[in-house]
Write a protein that binds this DNA or RNA. Sequence first.
DNA 1: GTTGGAATGGAAGTAAAATTCCATCGCCTG
DNA 2: CAGGCGATGGAATTTTACTTCCATTCCAAC
Lengths: 264, 264
Amino acid sequence: MGDPVAESGFQAFAAHVVAEHDKLPPQLQRIAQFVLDNPGRVALMTIADLAEEIEVQPSGVIRFSKAVGYTGFSEIQRILKEELSAPTSYEARLRTASDDGSELARAANLADASLSALPSAADIARAADILTGARIVHVVGFRRAFGTASYLAYLLSGFQAPVRQFTGIGDMADTEMQTLHADDVLVAISFPSYRPETRAVVAAARSVGTNLISITDSKLSPIARGAAQVLITDQQTDAGFRSVVGSMVTVQALALEYGRRRST
Amino acid sequence: MGDPVAESGFQAFAAHVVAEHDKLPPQLQRIAQFVLDNPGRVALMTIADLAEEIEVQPSGVIRFSKAVGYTGFSEIQRILKEELSAPTSYEARLRTASDDGSELARAANLADASLSALPSAADIARAADILTGARIVHVVGFRRAFGTASYLAYLLSGFQAPVRQFTGIGDMADTEMQTLHADDVLVAISFPSYRPETRAVVAAARSVGTNLISITDSKLSPIARGAAQVLITDQQTDAGFRSVVGSMVTVQALALEYGRRRST
DNA sequence: GTTGGAATGGAAGTAAAATTCCATCGCCTG
DNA sequence: CAGGCGATGGAATTTTACTTCCATTCCAAC
């Protein structure tokens, strides 16, 4: 609250090491250099690993730790681990700091977090490859995922994809499912609580051998089983409301990769 | 062996866990879920930390490790650490995301830009105030905006709002419009090219005196005229593809502000 | 050359973490 | 409702990692 930017433990550590570096004996200087150059790796190593890699004795690592002002290597490693697992980039922290209590600020922060946990580009590309070979692309998503599913269907139809969306309109769910075919692809979008309606469509696809692309929040999601490609996004963070931004960005990327394949 | 891409230890681990998941007792399923959903964090935790977070006993973590085919938790953690420090790790992806030429990177950058140009929290709050007094909240948006409109309708119905969405299903557009009333609010969502269907609904609302909230990209948008509140978002910046993330975040914030008013 | 102090090596001791094992609990089955 | 079995809780044990401390080496000054 007081400081505009609070100094992280890691930044303080780095500053100490730089300040002390010239006063250290040669061996400890080598340790200092390695730790500053590979903080991520050091966070995952034991003292023994580290000592072996630098060709030093374990006790040297302890001496280094004390020489730069800490009680031992464990304290330094704790700081490095915090830095490695900090999900907040500098930018994200700035945004969080500007949280003024409005739902808009919360929604924007949530969306920002979603953008840090998207599927990999390689997974999207694989999914797009699967789409390319489809006779028909079916899209399913209900309730929270319905908007995302609609958007995907809209984008794909813009690329002249043979796409149809499961809507459940007119009490025709059974009839809709009968159109699934082994040469087709089903893109299923579902998040907790996974709707039984969506799961039923996925089950129908499995039973007739339709290729499945699942956009969901966990590898253990009920719609992930048997999928040719799973795209993980919008994982539940801790507090309160769930964003749908991750899945929107994911389907946009998926559709554009598909379009790129169609046009070249 | 014959695989073109050698399977990483982590991929094998994930596959094992997914395969065994259903056979595991409930407690071990929770552990499985947590580890698959947070591999990066688990790589840095001790068994005790992990056990505390999931609220199980340390021994449960060991049972999980053996149940999915490993000798103990240490072996699993070794695999997770390798994955975390591998060049294809999540951290590395983030760093290169802005210049790898994938549609995902483009989509994520576009979404990020959208988050910098949202409506003001005050405008959202005013719009939420208007919603609160409505007899019925009508929502309209077609094609690109249909997903956003659906999401808004879904969120509002979650707060027991009297909401209905214009869908155009069954060639009932005329009939749908006849339900507009002076005590109602219409939330219209539209972006270039502004669909005539949406404009027709807005015109109908104007003619009967329905309050209008417009979510669009410009104050000069055809649906902005006569609106009680205009929320500007997703303005086209560059020549490329248009994101829909700004409007999704906007409707989420709007719905949550509405919910806050309803519950207090 | 000898001496003193800093630097390093390495083994022993201590702390922490992982694993084992047994007791209890709860549920299903007969 | 009694018996058995799988699941869970928790203490005890083993293993691993961290830290300390003393011995040795190196180097510079006298």
